Deep mutational scan, measured.
Amino acid sequence: TYYTVKSGDTLNKIAAQYGVSVANLRSWNGISGDLIFVGQKLIVKKG
Rank of each mutant, 00 (worst) to 15 (best):
S21W: 04
N12W: 11
T4W: 10
A15Y: 01
I36F: 06
I14D: 00
L11H: 01
K46I: 15
I43S: 05
T10Y: 04
K45H: 15
I43F: 09
T4Y: 12
Y18S: 07
K41M: 15
N29K: 00
Y2L: 10
N29L: 01
N12E: 14
V22N: 05
I31C: 04
K13V: 09
K41F: 08
D34S: 09
G47S: 14
K6D: 06
G33C: 06
I36M: 06
G19M: 10
V44S: 02
I36E: 03
A16R: 11
K13F: 11
K6W: 03
T1Q: 13
N29S: 03
N12L: 15
S32D: 12
I31M: 10
G19L: 09
W28M: 08
Y18N: 09
V5Q: 00
N12A: 13
D34Y: 09
L42H: 00
R26W: 04
N24H: 12
G33V: 07
N24T: 12
N29Y: 01
Q17I: 14
T10K: 05
D34W: 08
V38S: 08
G33W: 05
V44A: 04
S27R: 09
K46W: 15
S27P: 01
F37V: 10
G30Q: 11
I14T: 01
G19K: 10
V44C: 05
G33Q: 09
W28Y: 05
N12M: 15
Q17H: 14
A15D: 01
T10M: 05
V22R: 04
N24G: 06
I14S: 00
K45M: 14
Y18E: 07
L35Q: 12
R26D: 02
Q40P: 01
L11A: 02
S7K: 11
W28C: 03
Q40M: 11
A16P: 03
G19W: 06
S27F: 10
K6G: 09
D9M: 02
G30Y: 10
Q40D: 08
T1R: 08
K13M: 12
N12T: 11
W28H: 03
Q17F: 13
V20H: 03
S27E: 15
Q40E: 08
